[in-house]
Design a protein around this nucleic acid. Structure first.
Lengths: 198, 198, 198, 198
DNA sequence: AATGAATGAGCCTTCATTCAT
DNA sequence: GATGAATGAAGGCTCATTCAT
């Protein structure tokens, strides 16, 4: 197991910093948040922040992994009960919307940071910490296509068609302008299946 | 007319700065690019940069408008020849991909900056400079729906379904990992129409 | 000529920073001197310091070159009038002591920084700025030996025997404990010649 | 006796820290070495380091005394067998070179730290721990001069002439550039005697 | 004796912006 | 219009040291 045993007190401090960071990043944005902001918000000292995360990027990456894990654990559990393409497609799309509605700060953070330098540079670390969930899903998608349960398309088209609309909507919502209307997840799930069914 | 008369020499210097800025933003990213970088790359002096654009954000906004205009002029011309929903939908999607392939730096810039603070804050200025092209398109979309040429959907769903997959693909491409395979525009146009046709 | 034309005002500011730096390094030591100390002492702003020297090390190197040039210009002039080994040896030793007595801060700085990381890393730059004076002197020394004007010794022994005692004395003096008694330069020059004469 | 009784386990830990410190100081330099470096290298904990040495300077001083003792014990033994000036002079010079060659890290450390603030401030402690060996030697030197076995010189000239060349050579060697050729100790010993004999 | 999480003062450096020439 | 030296607020980060366990 990769988790090292940490003293309980250290773990509590680490958690407080991560929570404070999410709050600050949500309120101010990643670039505009200073270590001082996080310090004030978490109650920890500057030194403690660096003791746990090494650098500002370290906080971003640790928080990203933390949010991603929560996101994926729920989705993974749901997908285990889906065995055909339609269920898979609808579940993925709906989960994206509903989880984001339930965890707005974490969702916004994931959306905004996905391609941010600070996080992108640590992709290997992120993948090793999250078990490369995306690739697994992609593999399953291609298997469905091979079985004829999905339309045959160039492989680079699957992910955009599956999640593009949801991402676009979430991004708009994350920018603070649009809402996430109740029921919109069903509309997007329908549309995704309309696009991808054979 | 809002355009002030500018001396030819001033205009040339302005253009050089804008070109250098695009090159720097592409290479280093907006936040990481310094005025000094732009100065070195453009051959202008720091003072000259400020004379033309007032502040770093001013460069970002001016460049954004510049790129957006190029993007929209082509699209506007094409859309004038399309009078039914299917042509409209297909043209919008295909243009997004083909124009981006032809103007990679400008396209990347537009994609990355769309919701960046620096540009978002100047939206009114951008809209007044580009004639609110997006809203016009959206209006036309809703008219098609009213006429029964498009599926009836919650209004917030149209844009994500129309452009979400293309945006997702372009974003992935813009991040430097995926390619834009030849013909992929047709696949996405087909899919968009499949999603939106009645 | 390697010297770029600089604006007079810029040059004056640069000089003020260098003077202040020498004063601070003498008083506090290189490592303990902060940019803030130099700023206060020179009247320049932090930004100006970095505009001219790029980094703290840049000040150290520029100042080192500055002091070394003064040291070498005088010695070079004196050595041009010396044509035999004895004159050469005596002049070098005496100049080391007398110049240091006349320019105590600069001398201390040279002695202390000679092998300090910050300066040692820039040796190529220093040599290109000072014309590799040391190597020239060493070459001349070996020529004297070849002509029989000096004792035949392993080549690594010449510099220690020529300057070691003076350096040792100066180092002790630079540390603030010993004095540089009047006439001591003659004693060391005699000793050096006693050591090196055939 | 000033040595406190220490538990064997404590002593072992203390020794490990001292060894690690020498290794780190050699590799990184005194100022650039952090307590964390020493901790990693020694296997001890930060707290343990402070338990034994009180402060970073404490390590420097303890290590200095440790190295100096080793240096002096050998020299003291050798000097006991020398009763005339020539033997004394030659032995001192040769020992400086040969001991350094045999204990390069310790020698480098002594050379580099001799006038470093951290060590200089603790001179009284060092003298009381090493029995003021230097002063004894200096006293013996002056006695030889009084007896006519050495040249009459200003008292400040003796040490530079005796050890200056060796120090200069060692310093050059310690900086990592020059070598310590076999036999060079004899050359310097000859030269020192040539300088100092009546 | 040992541990290592926590502390926080202080430092170097960056960089957008100004302004005298 | 152009120039580039000067400005200084602000931020990320280091690291010696402390102390509860």
């Amino acid at each position: 197991m990769e988790k090292e045993r940490r003293s309980a007190v250290g773990e509590r401090s680490r958690r407080a910093i991560l929570d404070a960071a999410l709050e600050c990043f949500t309120r101010l944005g990643w670039a505009a948040t200073t270590i001082e902001d996080i310090r004030k918000s978490s109650g920890a000292s500057v030194g403690s922040v660096y003791h746990h995360f090494g650098a500002k990027e370290g906080i971003a990456v640790a928080l990203y992994i933390d949010c991603l894990r929560q996101h994926q654990e729920v989705l993974r559990a749901r997908l285990e009960r889906e065995h055909d393409a339609e269920g898979f497609v609808r579940t993925v799309v709906m989960h994206h919307i509903t989880w984001s509605r339930a965890n707005p700060d974490a969702a916004r953070y994931l959306i905004r940071m996905r391609r941010e330098e600070a996080v992108a540079a640590a992709e290997p670390e992120i993948q090793s910490a999250t078990g490369d969930f995306l690739r697994e899903g992609f593999t399953r998608l291609k298997a469905f296509a091979k079985e004829g349960q999905l339309l045959h398309l160039p492989s680079t088209a699957y992910m955009p068609l599956l999640l593009g609309p949801a991402q676009e909507l979430l991004r708009y919502w994350a920018s603070g302008r649009g809402e996430l209307k109740p029921g919109i997840e069903k509309v997007l799930a329908d549309a995704a299946w309309r696009c991808l069914k054979p």
